[in-house]
């Protein structure tokens, strides 16, 4: 899948995590309107490049069976301008449908229905088409039992495990005042009942610990990151003075590698704005490196171990 093997001089085999960045400057207009046709082509291109398949349907079969109940975990806590664009999640869902997955077996979800609705997601809990709902929907809620791992003790959204068995992580890439970067790893803060308990010390090691919980680690199969508009400072809430229409989609199956690439993108944009790197601003996203350490081993967090593919449409 999204990995590439390389034989080192020592004879060891290095397995690189492939991350595909697809860019198209025209995909988002100055006013924020998304070109859905172009976006769909970008996601298709990314999936194909990730899996070496010629089309997105074959690419998606690497990760999902036709009978899977698929969750698409978005991040809509930042309001309309700093959240996953609904078009991104819906594009992925459409491609899954084209690949043979039934729309009723897909759930676009986040913490609260109100927040989903605020940014334009079409709530749907029982009608035709994709389900779209918050964990706070009546009858959903959180698990009765705590998930526990190292520093984590939380209740997990019942969307995971009860409504769905696999996840596509559909985060938005942006700056975060505490963790430095919020992207795919931090997106699962929206899947637990008590994220406020895990923001100390730059959210580290809490983000890595949370992603190590078996229910999350085993369910997550793919990341399709919304980098259409990237805010490089002042996050997670929206500040237009630090936002750039980057016009990108980042796709990978290694969430750590995706976040590491996202971190590099944010630092580059910060440079354009005359801002210091996140490290110099004392906001290096430590959690990405913790997620890659030997205690967590959730993925790769250095360019030598990442097979980065950059392409444009």
């Amino acid at each position: 899948m999204g990995s590439k093997k390389q034989i080192l001089n020592s004879g060891d085999i290095l397995v690189k995590s492939r991350v595909v960045v697809v860019k198209s400057p025209g995909v988002i207009s100055a006013s924020g309107k998304v070109d859905k046709i172009l976006l769909s082509k970008m996601v298709e291109r990314g999936l194909s490049q990730l899996t070496f398949e010629s089309n997105s349907s074959d690419a998606l079969r690497h990760f999902f069976s036709p009978t899977d109940q698929i969750g698409l975990k978005v991040n809509c806590l930042g309001g309309e301008m700093a959240s996953t664009h609904p078009e991104v999640a819906l594009t992925v869902a459409d491609l899954l449908k084209r690949a043979g997955n039934k729309d009723k077996n897909m759930v676009i979800w986040d913490r609260s229905s109100e927040e989903l609705e605020e940014i334009g997601f079409p709530l749907n809990v029982k009608g035709e088409g994709y389900l779209c709902l918050g964990t706070d929907t009546q009858g959903v809620g959180y698990s009765n039992d705590l998930i526990e791992y190292k520093n984590i003790g939380s209740l997990l959204s019942q969307v995971m495990g009860k409504l769905t068995n696999v996840q596509i992580n559909v985060p938005v890439l942006k700056d975060h005042g505490l963790s430095g970067v919020t992207c795919s790893l931090k997106n699962y803060y929206g899947a637990i009942h008590n994220p406020n308990k895990y923001h100390e010390n730059g959210c580290d090691p809490y983000i890595a610990d949370l992603n190590s919980v078996p229910q999350i680690r085993e369910q997550q199969k793919l990341v399709v990151c919304d980098a259409l508009r990237v805010q490089c400072n002042g996050g997670p809430s929206y500040h237009p003075k630090w936002a750039e229409n980057f016009g990108g989609i980042i796709i990978g199956d290694d969430p750590v590698a995706v976040d590491f690439v996202g971190y590099q993108i944010i630092d580059k944009i910060r440079g354009k704005f005359g801002l210091p790197t996140l490290e110099k601003a004392n906001r290096k996203p430590k959690h990405i490196f913790t997620a890659a350490d030997k205690d967590h081993q959730l993925g790769k967090a250095n360019m030598a171990e990442i097979d980065l593919v950059e392409t444009a449409i």
């Binding site: 229905s113 809990v125 706070d136 929907t137 009546q138 009858g139």
Partner: peptide, 19 residues
């Protein structure tokens, strides 16, 4: 820490109203 309603009956019973 769970909204009311039958989870398994989601398709028939749940409403879109936040709990």
């Amino acid at each position: 820490v769970i909204p009311e309603g039958s989870f398994l009956g989601l398709s028939e019973n749940a409403s879109a109203a936040p709990a």
